[in-house]
Design a protein around this nucleic acid. Structure first.
Length: 180
DNA sequence: TAGGCCATCTGGTCCT
DNA sequence: AGGACCAGATGGCCTA
């Protein structure tokens, strides 16, 4: 079996290989100001997000100035970030399993998962609203009938949204439901 | 080969 | 102070 895009990647661009154009390890003393307008504030390691949040301030850099110490912190931080992303991916997987998409070899991408989940929720909402409006029949509705109606609503929502790239999932899902 | 998707690294900002 | 969160950058794998 193959795992798309997956590979045990060796660490690249490690801390020990900083961008040559900025503040190698000749950073100022902790506490000294070295921000606004400097080249370093424009690009750091290929990225920075200037005024997205809170605006203005850049780089706290109050941690140990010791290179070894910073390297250690960076590695720990990387590890935490990796763990965090793994948790996020687990949540995505749980979501994939919660929404009715057909059992196919092709795993839903993250964007597909979110889009399908959104439409699924909308479809369920529609059903609930419809049912509460028409009144539930005595003894309830069979699960098969509910499933059929759900699929109908689901299909309608997908079509209304014009998300062509998802219609194949709908088709697959529909045939799957007919088979079972 | 191009484009999509993904994992990872990274540094800035926010939160506790 | 340190961890969580976030988003840009980078590069690998896969498919059309």
């Amino acid at each position: 079996m193959k795992s798309k895009g997956k590979a045990v990647k060796p660490s690249r661009r490690t801390w020990s290989k900083p961008e040559p154009d900025i503040e190698a390890d000749t950073e100022p003393e902790p506490g000294s100001s070295e921000q606004e307008g400097s080249e370093a504030s424009v690009r750091i390691g290929g990225s920075w997000r200037g005024s997205l949040r809170g605006g203005g301030r850049r780089r706290r850099r109050t941690h140990g100035s010791n290179t070894k110490e910073r390297s250690k912190r960076r590695l720990e931080s990387n590890e935490r970030e990796r763990t965090r992303m793994h948790k996020l991916n687990n949540a995505f997987q749980a979501l994939r399993e919660a929404i009715p998409h057909v059992n196919t070899e092709k795993k839903l991408s993250k964007i597909e998962t979110l889009t399908l989940a959104k439409n699924y929720i909308k479809a369920l909402t529609t059903i609930v609203v419809d049912m509460s409006g028409a009144g539930l029949p005595e003894g309830g509705v069979s699960s098969e009938a509910n499933a059929a109606k759900l699929l109908q609503c689901y299909q309608k929502h997908l079509e209304d949204e014009g998300e062509d790239d998802l219609t194949q999932y709908l088709t697959q899902m529909h045939s799957f439901s007919q088979r079972s």
